[in-house]
């Protein structure tokens, strides 16, 4: 009986909720991996921001990536800013927010960089800048990077991350695909090496242009790679599509990328590839 009474007492006891408790617990300590859904302590991701369970590389800013990727770099066209050609509602506000979050003026960082004394043109798209969408400035910076690399006979390494063309800039976004492709063709015709590394997510007009034009195409593990969005595909064929349809691992199986490389291995692999593709006269 004693037991029952005690239970009753406990159950009936009114405990006043401590509403301020939440404020004392810092947020963001525990993160769920978006791919394997494992709960992770934030420090376990390490400097590379990689899920220790499934090797998925979290979406990091271009500035974070460059901090561990290269030995040295000098940034190009850092101040270039887009105009608002269509006077698109709220576009300027969106840009402003993205600039604060990424410390970039548009969705890509371009630079002349070195790894182990190998000099190369480098582009890193930032998925945190309006989902890495490709606007006129993105296109202009990539085109200038290739033109500079062509005239200085440098290889180019480009990290892609994009939701596709930036619809806020309408047809001008679309034209970037052709503009960049033509610059890549000139670079390629000089016998120069172009390496693309697909990071999460690489889709739409970026997949349909410079992401797939590399001499070698690498990807980080578990990256979303595709042309059309999953919802669009399902609406088109009126069927559910498998969740892994656009995973890097599936795309590798279908023969459209060369290899999947873990983030912590990238610097070493890039150095090796730059080394073996070095032109004899330089």
């Amino acid at each position: 009986m004693q037991l029952f009474n005690e239970l009753k007492t406990l159950g009936q006891q009114h405990i006043k909720a401590d509403k301020k408790a939440g404020e004392r617990v810092p947020s963001g300590l525990w993160i769920a991996c978006p791919k394997c859904h494992q709960s992770l302590y934030h420090k376990d991701l390490g400097i590379y921001q990689v899920c220790p369970n499934c090797e998925y590389g979290f979406r990091i800013t271009a500035r974070e990536r460059i901090s561990w990727l290269v030995d040295d770099f000098s940034e190009l066209d850092a101040d270039m800013c887009t105009t608002d050609p269509l006077h698109f509602p709220d576009y300027k506000k969106k840009l402003e927010k993205a600039r604060v979050n990424t410390k970039l003026n548009d969705s890509i960082l371009t630079a002349i960089a070195t790894i182990q004394d190998k000099k190369f043109g480098l582009g890193i798209m930032d998925p945190n800048f309006i989902m890495g969408s490709m606007g006129s400035v993105t296109g202009e910076k990539i085109t200038r990077l290739f033109e500079k690399a062509t005239s200085e006979k440098l290889p180019v390494v480009l990290f892609t991350a994009s939701g596709g063309a930036r619809m806020q800039e309408g047809i001008f976004s679309l034209m970037q695909m052709a503009k960049i492709s033509a610059a890549i063709k000139r670079h390629s015709d000089e016998g120069l090496f172009y390496l693309t590394i697909l990071t999460d997510p690489t889709t739409g007009g970026v997949t349909a242009s410079f992401a797939m034009q590399g001499d070698l195409i690498l990807s980080e593990p578990r990256v979303l790679i595709g042309f059309a969005g999953k919802r669009v595909i399902e609406q088109t064929i009126h069927q559910k599509v498998p969740n892994n349809l656009q995973d890097a691992e599936t795309v590798l199986e279908h023969g459209f990328i060369d290899a999947i490389v873990q983030r912590r291995e990238l610097k070493k692999k890039i150095a090796w590839l730059l080394n073996i593709h070095e032109k004899g006269d330089s």
């Binding site: 492709s181 390629s188 042309f227 595909i233 088109t236 064929i237 349809l245």
Partner: peptide, 25 residues
């Protein structure tokens, strides 16, 4: 470009990218 499952599997992005690259020259 057709946004179907088969199109993704057969490399719609690569096909478009290659057109853009090659036609420029």
């Amino acid at each position: 470009a057709y946004p179907g499952k088969s199109a993704e599997e057969n490399g719609q992005g690569e096909a478009l990218a290659n057109n853009l690259l090659e036609i420029s020259g």
